[in-house]
Design a protein around this nucleic acid. Structure first.
Length: 737
DNA sequence: TGTAGTTGTCATATA
DNA sequence: TATATATGACAACTA
């Protein structure tokens, strides 16, 4: 038996290692917080809230269920009070944290392992040690919670890689072996559970022998500890069941009821079978593997959430014992653990109690109601507040399956969103890379030439230059000054003829753009240094003054020959624009640069200085108009490009926001589903315990529980409950109107 | 030769 | 009304 326990313990431990390596985090702290007291009680003993014998309050009555002064059923009474308190605690909407703790396990030397074997492991020290472990974790969880969901998602996987990086070959082999072990683990979960219970019974026995326990640590708590450990259908981990503890108390309190006296284990067994019978272990592993694949795709938690939030009735999700109760993500925080102590730790590895198929376990308690309980969940009763009547009929079939509810549509919608979320996640990653590529490269084949750095204007935009100044009114003085320094587009400033005073008032353009344009005529070979400008063969110098072109393009005169001068003249002719040719032909006495860029006043003054014919004046005005329009066209194209780029960025941002909101929505829906399951189980349990004056259970078809605003639970006739439900249904409709 | 991208130009609208 | 600017559309040019 010891070897078997050791084997299984190691299996659990190794499975946890495996989970941590694949990035699955299992939150232990969740189950140790005040939200779920039973586990802490099981470990540390019952809290005062549940064990205090409030004799001064014995006459308090739970609505519809009082304590008869002559036959005080304290156990039943306090159980009912606890249930009521849990029902009242449900109004606090609670988003489950996705905190997961994993353990970086090292194998202790054999001696130490044997020394910390389960048989001698669970002592009071171990429980205190648990607190020590969970203490700092809580702090971590709180800080992570503050960071927010999206940030948490963005940080996924930050811790896990080093673990695998430290793996030795032995570790890998071990993981491989364990992986196969774990695949077979499901078949032996009953054994698992039994071993755990056996272990706990050993512990209990040891505690009794040691006599170190106080009286307030009753043996029944240890007994409750043992039978209430359930096995997680997915991980094989043992976890305490919340309700079976009550079940045992019920059987003790009401032995003469329809339920025959049964050992706690016997009570647990149907629960276990109820939990596991629907499970196809192979299917579970496929699910797990699919999660791993999703995570490998860097779809982060969203995909795993998708897996867990299958639509109602989806056997995958409904049978997924991990699903709503074991939020996982890739946040892996590693804790040190030893083989010896892991068995105790695993007992804490419990999903939330809502996952338990309470309904199915409770049915045997009220066999007389079993046929009519389905109708209990009418639209007006407590469950009716959460479940539609037409769907509640399936509530008792199995506790595991998803409860159809009014939110089914939302869930279905969520599933659709999740599908798109997955696409988004993939798409998001792609866009991120694309965006970075856009920033890094200046090449694009898009028809819109989004980052067409072939165009000098886009180059200027990518350099982060003053696009606004260029796109805005070009007549600004700053733009003009920059223009005076860098020269205009295509209308190179003739430094020999154009003084700065005249140029100051000229219409400016982007300096960077002008810089490259000047490069193009000063030294065309420099274009080869800019591959994105290589194939730009357009003439940007058609307005350039011939003198400037000469100085810029002509090789040293010493090397010139007479023949080459003609070639240079032809080259210069080709470099000149049509307007320059015309201006030359018309003998316009000033440069096109001046014609285009001078302010109107100065331009008029310039015209007044010369006696020009009508043809000349017309040509000058055309040159000025075309030149300005040319720059305007360039500005316009650049603005268009900037607009497209900004829109692209906005789309990416919106996609990111949408994905984040979808993830949050999935989280909320998951939490809502958990609460609904809890409400349903509590309702059934409370209703099943109610007895009339003759000690007979109430018929769900005739009575229903109603959850009033002041927190009390009333047992009312079903007809009345139906009426009230109809009123509640009308209210939202009226509001819509 | 066809195609895509760039640029210049025209026509038009607007400030 | 004149001027400047913006923009769609088209053509020319180049790779």
């Amino acid at each position: 038996m010891l070897s078997l326990k050791k084997y299984l313990t190691e299996g659990l431990l190794q499975f946890t290692i495996l989970l941590s390596l694949i990035g699955v985090r299992v939150d232990v702290d969740t189950y140790l917080t005040s939200q779920l007291p039973p586990l802490r009680e099981i470990i540390l003993g019952p809290s005062s809230a549940y064990t205090q014998t409030q004799f001064h309050n014995l006459r308090n009555t739970l609505d519809g269920y009082g304590i008869h002064p002559k036959s005080i059923d304290l156990d039943n009474y306090f159980t009912a009070r606890r249930l009521l308190s849990q029902v009242r605690a449900l109004d606090r909407f609670q988003v489950p944290t996705t905190e997961v703790n994993a353990w970086l396990v090292h194998r202790d030397p054999e001696g130490s392992v044997s020394g910390s074997q389960p048989s001698s492991g669970l002592t009071l020290e171990s429980s205190s040690g648990l607190q020590d472990v969970t203490g700092p974790d809580n702090g971590v969880r709180e800080s992570e919670t503050e960071q927010g969901f999206s940030e948490e998602l963005e940080d996924l996987g930050a811790v896990a890689p080093p673990v695998s990086g430290d793996l030795t070959k032995e570790d890998i082999d071990l993981i491989d072996i364990l992986w196969r072990q774990d695949i077979d683990l499901g078949a032996g979960r009953e054994i698992f559970d039994y071993s755990h219970r056996q272990k706990e019974q050993d512990v209990d026995k040891e505690l009794r022998d040691g006599g170190e326990q106080e009286d307030t640590w009753p043996s029944e708590s240890a007994e409750a500890l043992a039978p209430n450990l359930l096995v997680d259908g997915e991980t094989g981990e043992s976890f305490p069941a919340q309700f079976p503890a009550d079940v045992s108390s019920i059987t003790e309190a009401v032995p003469s009821e329809s339920e025959p006296p049964a050992l706690p284990n016997n009570l647990l067994s149907p629960l276990l079978t109820g939990t596991e019978s629907p499970f196809d272990l192979e299917q579970q592993w496929q699910d797990l593997m699919s999660i791993m694949e999703m995570q490998a795709m860097e779809v982060n938690t969203s995909t795993s959430e998708i897996m867990y939030n299958a639509p109602s009735g989806d056997p995958l999700s409904t049978n997924y014992s991990l699903a709503p109760n074991t939020p996982i993500n890739q946040n892996v925080s590693l804790h040190q653990a030893s083989l010896g102590g892991c068995s105790q730790d695993f007992s804490l590895f419990s999903p939330e109690v809502e996952s338990l198929p309470v309904a199915s376990t409770l049915l045997p308690l009220t066999p007389s109601n079993s046929t009519s309980l389905n109708s209990t969940f009418g639209s007006t009763n407590l469950a009716g507040l959460f479940f539609p009547p037409q769907l509640n009929g399936t509530a008792n079939d199995t506790a595991g399956p998803e409860l159809p509810d009014p939110l089914g549509g939302l869930l279905d919608e969520a599933m659709l969103d999740e599908i798109s979320l997955m696409d988004l996640a993939i798409e998001e990653g792609f866009n991120a890379g694309q965006a970075s590529q856009l920033e890094e490269e200046f090449d694009s084949d898009s028809g819109l030439s989004l980052d067409s750095s072939h165009s000098p204007s886009s180059l200027s935009s990518l350099e982060g230059s003053t696009s606004s100044s260029s796109s805005s009114s070009s007549a600004s003085s700053s733009a003009a000054s920059s223009f005076s320094e860098e020269g205009a587009v295509g209308y190179s400033s003739d430094s020999e003829t154009l003084d700065l005073e005249e140029a100051e008032g000229a219409v400016g353009y982007q300096p960077e753009y002008s810089k490259f344009c000047r490069m193009s005529y000063q030294d065309p070979s420099q274009l080869s240094c800019l591959p994105y400008l290589e194939h730009v063969g357009h003439n940007h110098t058609y307005n350039m003054a011939p003198s400037a072109l000469d100085s810029a393009n002509l090789p040293p005169t010493s090397t010139l020959k007479k023949g080459s001068k003609e070639k240079q003249a032809d080259f210069l002719d080709k470099q000149m624009s049509r307007d320059e040719h015309r201006a030359r032909a018309m003998k316009i006495p000033f440069t096109n640069d001046k014609i285009i860029n001078l302010p109107v006043e100065e331009f008029n003054e310039l015209l007044s200085k010369y006696q020009l014919s009508e043809a000349q004046l017309s040509l000058i005005r055309d040159i000025r108009r075309r030149g300005k329009n040319k720059m305007a066209a360039q500005n316009c194209r650049k603005r268009k490009l900037d607009t497209i780029l900004n829109l692209e960025r906005d789309v990416e941002d919106l996609q990111r926001d949408k994905a984040r909101l979808l993830r949050e929505k999935v989280e909320f829906l998951r939490s809502l589903r958990q609460m609904k399951q809890k409400v349903q189980s509590l309702y059934q349990e409370v209703f099943g315990r109610l007895r009339d004056e003759n000690g007979r259970p109430y018929s769900p078809s005739q009575y229903a529980l109603q959850y009033t605003g002041d927190g009390s639970v009333l047992l009312i006739p079903r007809t009345l409950a139906d009426q009230q439900a109809r009123r509640q249904e009308r209210k939202p409709k009226d509001r819509r109107k």
